[in-house]
């Protein structure tokens, strides 16, 4: 039984005061905490975006079609994530892995788009050092991208480890997938907020600009 516990050692049902799993509770507390992390970054961006002394300004560089596509990719990755969990809970490990990999691939696609976007911005003369908009923008979206990257590694690790230790994604251990899923969906909803607050609700262009 002890050997069965890799990846969180909780194959057996724990007894807890609330009946809630420790790790799941930890993840929700972490997400509450991460709300404050991204909240502070978003506040930094919103406070700073209108304060740049030199361009490029947001309306000069943003590509709404590209970003909308990226937003769509993350939304779909949430769908594949939840389908992965459903498959694992049904005991269908094969489809669980397929959906997990699909989620990771959608995440990678999102990151590739972000890399392309950053690169475009750099070509147009916007770097973190250029102005306050650039500094705040790259910091906010960069930390979001870092969260996506971590998520991709996490999901991939679950798939790889499950090939060696199949029980890690057995229905009894579906929590391994569920908790990774909570993290992944959170990264998605952060993007929902960023998409609206950063991209769609741009400040009016400077007068005469």
């Amino acid at each position: 039984m002890q050997q069965a516990g890799a990846l969180g050692h909780s194959a057996e049902a724990e007894h807890t005061s609330t009946g809630l799993n420790h790790r799941k509770l930890l993840m929700w507390a972490f997400l509450a905490s991460d709300c404050l992390f991204f909240g502070s970054l978003i506040a930094t961006y919103l406070v700073n975006r209108g304060r740049s002394l030199v361009g490029p300004y947001p309306h000069e560089v943003f590509s709404i079609p590209l970003t909308s596509y990226s937003a769509f990719l993350l939304l779909m990755s949430s769908l594949t994530m939840v389908l992965a969990l459903a498959a694992v809970q049904r005991g269908n490990a094969k489809w669980g892995r397929v959906w997990l990999l699909a989620t990771a691939l959608l995440g990678i696609h999102f990151l590739a788009n972000q890399g392309y976007e950053f690169n475009q911005f750099a070509h147009e003369g916007l770097t973190p050092r250029t102005n306050l908009f650039g500094a705040s923008f790259f910091t906010l979206t960069g930390f979001h991208g870092a969260h996506v990257t971590l998520g991709v590694f996490w999901l991939t690790s679950i798939v790889v480890i499950s090939l060696f230790r199949p029980h890690t994604i057995s229905p009894k251990n579906s929590l391994n997938v569920e908790i990774a899923g909570l993290y992944w969906h959170f990264v998605d909803i952060v993007w929902i907020a960023i998409f609206t607050l950063v991209y769609l609700l741009q400040p009016a262009p400077p007068v005469g600009g």
């Binding site: 809630l20 929700w28 509450a32 905490s33 709300c35 909240g39 502070s40 506040a43 899923g181 929902i192």
Partner: peptide
């Protein structure tokens, strides 16, 4: 996403309380 994909609608209300607490603080900030 929070209600259906993260299952908060169907899960223990303590999770909702924790998360919504953090969320409101963030919005407040």
């Amino acid at each position: 996403v929070v209600m259906f994909y993260m299952h908060l609608k169907f899960d223990h209300k303590l999770f909702s309380a924790l998360f919504v607490g953090g969320l409101w603080l963030a919005i407040g900030v």
